[in-house]
Write a protein that binds this DNA or RNA. Structure first.
Length: 639
RNA sequence: GCCGAUGUAGCUCAGAUGGUAGAGCGCGUCCUUGGUAAGGACGAGGUCACGGGUUCAAGUCCCGUCAUUGGCUCCA
């Protein structure tokens, strides 16, 4: 049979040759590193014989597929350990995930706690040393049902029910047998380092109404060194946690007494926030957006009209009642209903469209308590919202313009790597959505074409659209490679309908405009939370709350420091003076930990020459320059 | 909302088996007036999240509430 390699070369092998044998024929090293083999479009066990002409690639730790095989096998190993330590445990599912694997289990009466993880880890180490082979076995549905019925494992039984006879396989290793389609490592000894992390509850099959199982998360590696690096990375992430840095750098606070999920912006945070807003406003103004400001409450009827009350009313902050009239007002959960009312304030001609209405609007949503997370998930937050009212024909162009803004913003903030997700409707399930086929086709096409034109790296998800229109979401990767969902662009046919929005067309007839909702940052809170973690608190100069700090060598030079401060302040450079009674080394350390981009050290020499000694955050001493020179260069940097 | 963990000074954390609270950092005062990542001395800070209960006695044990946190579910 002919085996085609990823580089296109073809080599002949005997029928029944396994992936491992093919790897060996290439190099000893590859055979050692191989974890699985991709045969055509499936991943197979290395030991599984190949009988037909195939395209193959050998998967190692470097491949995502290789890691998946590795972690899937690790999940089985953990299951074996669990069964040994907690006999009678029933098993749900145990898949690999982006960083490791988990297994959902039901230990019945036996309670499993954090402390047991150590024991399980030890058991896993013991088991992997046994070098048990992972053995694949085809089994009939009847046999499979019989096996798991006897084992009294109703979860596996349920999974089998949904499979067709003839496609059921078991994997055995050591003392553990699992219903599993594989693939797996040749044997357990590939796993060299084990770490179990956490116990969590997880609903069986993700269904809130079903039993909650115990989920154990773990990660394994083929080398101890890789585990050490991973743990180090986790520590780094912890250091960058926006909740920790947000407190230390006095960006925001949360007070139990004010309410959970309600971040309060401190002066340093306000500077960052206002700078970002200023930048986006400028960008929007150039593109013809107009700013509006709506109140943060609105009558309940407004949200009944918009449909939000019906859908979210009972899970929202409940209505505010007026003292006498018996009217009910709600905290606004979205800005769009207000903006629709603004649109209706006067009749519109097609000549005015697109109308781009922007507001940094603060909204309140009663997020579930378990979801709250610093700035990243809050109950009160400010969207960098805008609604574009346009004709269907203008949709694509407007979409492109929005994508353009998002790109510019992300680049400006140093997120070079970002991707997008196109969410379309499920054409087999049209009743879930509102709007005509024609409108959907037009708007989906507009998004797809806009994405293609911008050459965005996008995935398409069918059935993920909102009920009122398709959308495009943007994801960025932060400095540690973590994905965050940020900006969103959504097409909406629903609200124009509900609010009966119209414009007069060229034909002198009334037409329905289309609305685009868009928020490039998503929310100021979420975005700044991400920015904190991405930058580790080392904000770019233009956003840094304190841009320059003057460090006098001793208090003899405080007067000179004040003079410098005045010059910098006149140039709108955010400057402070460390007039504490400390030595220069200490002042530098404090400024460094305070993440101030520039330190100006001034003493006898500097005062005599009208200069400053510049020290840059993280890079150190840049030498002595004239004050004017420094102001020039920093102003240039800020351009 | 659900499962697990946690809640002690502004921050980070110690406080076996119940006997009336401690460190480092920060803060204040004083000494020191210094040249590129921590100068020194002294001092002030705590209803041990809150509410009940057990006990002669609770930071410590039990119950409840609130909050934080790791997940799950949800996310206009």
């Amino acid at each position: 049979m002919n085996i085609t390699f990823p580089d296109g070369s073809v080599k002949e092998f005997d029928k029944g040759t396994s992936g491992l044998e093919i790897a060996k024929s290439i190099s000893h090293r590859l055979a050692k590193e191989a974890l699985g083999i991709k045969v055509n479009n499936d991943i197979w066990d290395l030991h599984r014989p190949i009988h037909e002409d195939s395209f193959i690639s050998i998967l190692t730790w470097e491949d995502k597929g290789g890691k998946m095989v590795f972690w899937h096998s690790s999940a089985h190993l953990m299951a074996e350990a669990i069964e040994a330590v907690f006999p009678g445990t029933k098993f749900g599912i145990g898949p690999p995930i982006d960083n490791g694997f988990y297994y959902d289990i039901d230990t019945g009466e036996q309670e499993i706690t954090q402390a047991d993880l150590i024991q399980l880890e030890n058991k896993m180490r013991e088991l992997l040393a046994e070098k048990s082979q992972y053995i694949r076995e085809d089994i009939s549905k009847k046999e499979a049902v019989a096996y798991f019925t006897e084992k009294n494992d109703e979860y596996k039984q349920e999974l089998i029910e949904e499979l067709d006879d003839g496609e059921i396989t078991l994997y055995k290793h050591g003392n553990f047998v699992d219903l599993c389609k594989g693939p797996h490592l040749p044997n357990t000894s590939y796993i060299k380092a084990v770490k179990l992390f956490a116990i969590a509850g997880a609903y069986w099959r993700g269904d809130e109404k079903r039993k909650q199982l115990t989920r154990i998360y773990g990660i394994t590696f083929p080398k101890q060194k890789l585990l050490d690096e991973y743990l180090l990375m986790l520590e780094e992430a912890k250091k960058r946690d926006h909740r920790k840095l947000g407190r230390e750098l006095e960006i925001f606070m949360i007070s139990d007494k004010v309410g959970s999920g309600l971040p309060i912006w401190l002066p340093n945070g306000v500077i960052i926030r206002e700078k970002l807003i200023e930048y986006l406003k400028k960008e929007q103004k150039q593109r013809g957006y107009v700013q509006v400001i709506a109140p943060i409450i609105g009558k309940k009827e407004l949200y009944i009209t918009s449909g939000h009350y019906e859908k979210y009313g009972s899970d929202s902050f409940q209505p505010i009642k007026t003292p006498s009239e018996g009217e009910e007002y709600m905290l606004k959960p979205m800005n769009c209903p207000h903006h629709c009312e603004i649109y209706k304030n006067k009749p519109h001609s097609y000549r005015e469209l697109p109308l781009k209405m922007a507001e940094f609007g603060t909204v309140y949503r009663y997020e579930q308590s378990g979801e709250l997370n610093g700035l990243v998930r809050a109950r009160g937050f400010t969207q960098d919202d805008a609604h574009i009212f346009c004709t269907p024909d203008q949709l694509k162009e407007e979409f492109l313009d929005v994508v353009d803004i998002i790109e510019i913003l992300f680049r400006k903030l140093g997120f070079e790597e970002f991707s997008a997700q196109i969410s379309l409707r499920d054409p087999n399930n049209k009743e879930k959505y509102i709007g005509t086929d024609e409108a959907w086709e037009k708007s989906e096409l507009a998004i797809i074409e806009a994405v293609a034109e911008k050459e965005l790296n996008a995935v398409t998800e069918i059935g993920e659209a909102a009920f009122y229109g398709p959308k495009l979401d943007f994801m960025v990767k932060d400095a540690l490679g973590r994905q965050w969902q940020l900006g969103t662009v959504q097409v909406d046919y629903n609200l124009p309908e509900r609010f009966d929005l119209t414009y007069i067309g060229e034909d002198n007839q009334k037409h329905r405009p289309v609305m685009i909702h868009r928020a490039p940052f998503g929310s100021m809170e979420r975005f700044i939370g991400l920015l904190i973690e991405h930058s580790g608190g080392d904000f770019p100069l233009w956003l840094a709350p304190r841009q320059v700090i003057i460090l006098p060598i001793s208090d003899k030079y405080i007067n000179y420091a004040k003079k410098i401060w005045k010059s910098l302040d006149n140039n709108e450079i955010r400057t402070s003076i460390d007039d504490s009674n400390e030595k220069i080394g200490r002042k530098i350390r404090d400024a460094e930990l305070g993440k101030v981009p520039y330190m100006l050290i001034v003493g006898e020499k500097e005062e005599a020459e009208g200069s400053v000694s510049v020290r840059k955050r993280k890079s150190g001493d840049l030498g002595q320059v004239k004050l004017d020179e420094f102001i020039n260069s920093i102003s240039k940097e800020l351009n």
